[in-house]
């Protein structure tokens, strides 16, 4: 079981309220990702759930039990830290066994559980090494192993992949997803990387300045962002925002068009501009187009190779049903 309910929780450091009253329901077995720019309060929120910080007000319920006053050791949650936080003076075996040792489980049972976890995580050959002798990916797996053996109600991940290089990050992302498939335990995962959020989550929670901007499945957020912030944050490259005469035409204060929803032409289209930079990636081409009346260059994503160069005039046409409209409160107009 791993059902977590946050009830009107707030957190203040001194006079600064970093989390205004917040409600959230996390269902058993869900993979929930907290995503947002740095400083949005996502890590604080995770630490509140973990019990590493006190909530200033409100309740945290874990499996229907009020856990607000319960110390972290007793909440039955396991956490994987950004720095992995392995115990450098213990072997991999002892690292993984540490939670069991703290729980007073007998030696034989400890060994069996460690062996099982090591097998799942491909760590069997490394059990007698120290963390310092492992690669980044292996350390990450040890940290996960230490979390698994507790058989927690939920796993908490605090930006676990940010210290890994790009290739390894993709691998570990898959491993964590597979782990979730096989364990079916609730996972709460904090990241600032919207790609990780989109690829892993059952449910994404977008946070901004301590506030929940939107909760939903990855595709819900992509197709129907509730406001301009979510629209800009989810999707890569970022959505283009146009206002003024471009927006009034659509009866909105601002309109947003994703780079992949613009078609380009040499001769005719809805809008016209000049190519500032073109990036050729082989599979895709990104154009950054300067347009009159738009402050930032408009980004366009085209598949394959297209023949535009710096200084060329280009005509852009948005896909009609993919235009997002926002009012002067930055909220989505349905």
């Amino acid at each position: 079981m791993g059902q977590i309910t946050l009830n009107q929780i707030t957190k203040s450091f001194g006079d600064v309220q970093v989390i205004p009253p917040l409600d959230l329901q996390i269902d058993d077995g869900e993979f929930v990702v907290f995503v947002g720019p740095s400083g949005c309060g996502k890590s604080t929120l995770l630490r509140l759930i973990a019990g590493l910080e006190d909530v200033s007000s409100g309740d945290i319920n874990i499996d229907g039990r009020n856990a607000t006053e319960v110390p972290p050791a007793k909440r039955g949650l396991a956490m994987v830290f950004q720095s992995y936080a392995l115990y450098p003076h213990m072997s991999v075996r002892k690292n993984i066994a540490f939670p069991l040792r703290m729980a007073g489980i007998d030696k034989a049972a400890q060994d069996a559980k460690v062996a099982a976890a090591a097998k799942v995580l491909n760590l069997t050959d490394y059990l007698d090494r120290r963390p310092g002798q492992l690669s980044g990916g292996q350390r990450q797996r040890v940290a996960i192993g230490r979390a698994i053996v507790r058989e927690p109600a939920a796993f908490l991940f605090d930006e676990p992949l940010s210290n890994l290089d790009a290739a390894l990050r993709v691998n570990m992302r898959l491993e964590i997803s597979e782990l979730h498939q096989s364990l079916k335990t609730t996972m709460i995962y904090v990241t600032h990387d919207q790609v990780e959020a989109m690829t892993m989550a059952d449910k994404i929670v977008v946070l901004h300045a301590g506030r929940i901007e939107q909760v939903g499945s990855p595709l819900e957020l992509y197709h129907t962002p509730r406001n301009k912030f979510v629209a800009g944050f989810i999707g890569s490259p970022k959505m283009n925002f146009l206002s003024g005469r471009f927006a009034t035409e659509f009866d909105a204060a601002t309109i947003g068009v994703r780079p992949e929803h613009l078609t380009v032409s040499h001769s005719d289209g809805k809008w016209v501009g000049k190519v500032a930079v073109s990036e050729h990636l082989g599979s895709d081409t990104f154009l950054y187009v300067d347009m009159d009346g738009v402050d930032e260059p408009v980004t366009v994503r085209s598949t394959g190779e297209i023949g535009f160069r710096h200084g060329d005039t280009v005509h852009l046409t948005p896909t009609a049903d993919k235009i997002h409209r926002f009012d002067n409160q930055d909220l989505r107009i349905a």
């Binding site: 590493l52 830290f81 950004q82 936080a85 703290m102 507790r150």
Partner: peptide
């Protein structure tokens, strides 16, 4: 790093442990 001590707390260690 304080995270290591927090990890111990999450792993169920009491203050003295």
């Amino acid at each position: 790093p304080g995270e290591i001590l927090e990890a111990a707390r999450m792993d169920g260690a009491e203050l003295w442990s």
